[in-house]
């Protein structure tokens, strides 16, 4: 019974590797994008702040699958011929970026205004205040939600299979359609995702506890 799973394991593991690559790219680039936007969202330009707010609002209100479809159809429509991974990857990066931007903005705004007043009173300018006072503290606050965000992003790579990108879930469906051993294969796949995600989950929770203790 478990034989089906074992014989197909190499294929599934290759799928898992693809998932990991996708996840790595999306999480790193998405978090970088979001952090930059989150910092800009606390800046002085009202237009920039408004634009980022709209971006966050729209992307947080629609399903990631829709954004992936958008990526899939938008690139050719604009004249670019990219493979499914790039299309799906860029879509996810933009999506993760929106959530990250909200987390980062929130963390920056949660630094006590009294400290910013104190830093200004010493004659510090915005750059120094951001670097020495705001970001060290905001980073600490932002890490647990960012880790949770990363966890969600990793799980979302599975949805790329719906749009036609080959990764672990796509591979699983291929095998199930061939062998009809749905339970074994999907449970096995769940186990693989669990192995990837659970450590991230634990990391996020460990960091949360550390934060509570230090306050």
């Amino acid at each position: 019974m478990v034989n089906v799973l074992i014989t197909n394991l190499p294929y599934l593991l290759r799928g898992a590797v693809m998932t990991l690559w996708l996840a790595l790219a999306v999480v790193t680039l998405g978090t970088l994008l979001g952090t930059g936007l989150g910092i800009l969202a606390t800046g002085r330009s009202r237009i920039v702040r408004a634009a980022i707010t709209v971006y966050i609002f729209v992307l947080r209100g629609i399903p990631v699958l829709v954004v992936m479809f958008l990526g899939y159809y938008a690139f050719p429509a604009l004249g670019f011929r990219v493979n499914a991974y790039v299309a799906v990857g860029v879509a996810q990066i933009v999506y993760v970026g929106a959530f990250t931007a909200e987390i980062v903005r929130s963390a920056i705004l949660s630094v006590h205004p009294g400290q910013i007043a104190a830093a200004k009173s010493l004659g510090m300018r915005r750059g120094a205040i951001l670097r020495e006072v705001i970001l060290p503290q905001a980073t600490c606050i932002a890490i647990p939600p960012l880790l949770n965000n990363a966890l969600t992003a990793v799980k979302q790579t599975a949805y790329a299979s719906v749009v036609g990108a080959w990764e672990l879930t796509y591979a699983a469906r291929e095998i199930v359609e061939r062998t009809l051993a749905s339970f074994q294969i999907f449970l096995g796949v769940m186990a693989i995702y669990f192995a990837i995600c659970y450590p991230l989950s634990l990391l996020a929770r460990w960091y949360e506890k550390r934060l509570v203790v230090s306050h």
Binding site: G114, Q115, A117, A118, S121, V133, P136, C140
Partner: peptide
């Protein structure tokens, strides 16, 4: 100097 000190906690 502020009423709430406003020292940098980090």
């Amino acid at each position: 100097v502020f009423q709430s000190f406003n020292l940098f906690p980090h």
